[in-house]
Amino acid sequence: MGTTIDPAPGEHVAMLRKARGWTQTQLSDRASVSTSLLSKIEVGNRALTPEVAASLGRAFGMSMAEVLGRASVAANDEQLLAELRAAMRDYDMPEDQAAPEDRIAADLRTADGYRDAVDVAALITLLPGLLRDATTYAHTANSGAAWSTLADVYSTVYWLAARHRWMDMAELAVTRQRWAVEQQPNPVAEAFAARDRAGTYLNFGAVERGLVVVDRAIVAVQSAPLGTTDRDLAMGILNLRGMTLAGRLQDKKEAKREAQRHIDSAQRAASSFPAGDIDAHGLTFGPQNTLTHVLATNVDLGQPQAALALTDNLDQALTGLPPTRVAPTRINAARAQLDLGDRDGALENLSLAFDAAPQMARIHPMGREVLRVLSSLHRRSNPELVRLSRLSGIRL
């Protein structure tokens, strides 16, 4: 059970290009990407970044997620995914018998735990039944809490789909999530739904439209009747998404300005949680998670030194965060170190990402790209590269 191995993103680009019968020059002209950079990406001497993937996607007529490549699952998980899709289709068809509320709450906590631990195999097994139970509960109880619970389940479905770049499922999940929160007024749940919807634009490479979704949601939160804690939580989550989107704008001057606006707002919201990050609706928010997003945004802005300078002790900065946050941050740090020519540091952080969340690291597009580049650049046998190669399925 689990995800099968697919080509790394840079290798996938070469496959897409060759399938169309295009030369590297033809693709680079269509995508406004230098032929030299494209060649390095295809052979594994440079990592395919989200910004370049979005440009290539426009040339191919594909989403950024499709360029990066969908992650497949093992054959014995396909039936579970079919059951999950069926449960999503039956969003307005509750079962005859409602599951006990306490069981649904316990199952949702279990799902959150699988998500935090990036235990994809266990999550795929749990979600179809949980979604049907939560659907029936929401229709039967018809309370704000019940519909919010259903929205949280759809948010977890979105997380699963987005991580694997199954964008048809991700889009349907956020549509259902938004529908659920609209059944009963809940400004915080609506903010989380907007955050996930903006995430689909992020995966498609349409970052400008994603920022529109975020900014509209921020205006709605500012005018909603919320307490300080709920307002700061909603604002914080939205601005984390906003900074990520802004960091990938093509106009880097605008990107830096917009990213800083969202960084400042997120940091103000995070200051309301001096005791540490909190968990809500399957997500984490507070000073630590804000730092991890600022680090990632600086890497996307082409500022690797600024990213690494955010903390002189990354181990301490990540202490207490779930693997679902630790692994991507280690991968982003590895990408920054690779950009600065620190191959040993990049390999160390990539190894720590695989140790923290192996199921995520092996499907994370940038994790796979960093490993592919390190494999290409290393001129001698390296036991750690061999270990990561076996875990990821990327050939040395």
Score class of each variant (00 low, 15 high):
D116F: 11
V73R: 01
E95Y: 02
W147G: 10
L131C: 06
D119C: 06
D133W: 04
D119E: 08
A162N: 10
A71F: 07
A105R: 14
Q79A: 14
L108E: 04
A53G: 11
A134F: 03
L38T: 07
L127M: 08
V33N: 01
N45V: 12
W166L: 12
S63N: 14
M62F: 05
A31T: 00
L126Y: 01
T140Y: 10
G44W: 07
N142C: 12
V43R: 15
A106K: 03
V157T: 09
P128F: 02
M64S: 09
G21S: 03
A98P: 10
Q26S: 02
Y137N: 11
D90T: 05
L160G: 07
A65K: 03
D96L: 14
K18P: 00
S55M: 15
D107A: 11
T125G: 13
R85A: 13
D77H: 03
W22N: 07
T49F: 07
N76Q: 13
L123S: 06
P94T: 04
T23E: 01
N76Y: 03
W147A: 07
S63A: 15
S63Y: 12
A151Q: 04
E101D: 12
V157F: 12
S32W: 01
R163K: 12
E78H: 06
L123G: 04
S34V: 01
D29R: 15
E66P: 00
A98R: 11
Q97S: 15
V120F: 15
G113H: 03
L127D: 00
L38Q: 00
S148L: 07
S72H: 13
A145F: 06
L27A: 01
R89K: 09
D107C: 02
A161V: 04
A19C: 05
L48R: 01
A151G: 09
L56D: 03
I104P: 06
T23P: 02
T125C: 06
P100I: 08
N45G: 12
L68D: 11
M93D: 10
L123F: 01
Q79C: 09
G69N: 07
L130G: 06
T49Q: 07
E83D: 15
E51A: 15
Q24I: 08
V52G: 07
N45L: 15
S72M: 09
A65T: 03
A151V: 05
D90E: 11
Y154S: 06
V118I: 13
M88E: 06
S36A: 14
T136I: 12
S72E: 13
A106N: 08
A75C: 09
A59F: 00
E83G: 00
D133V: 06
V33H: 02
A19Q: 14
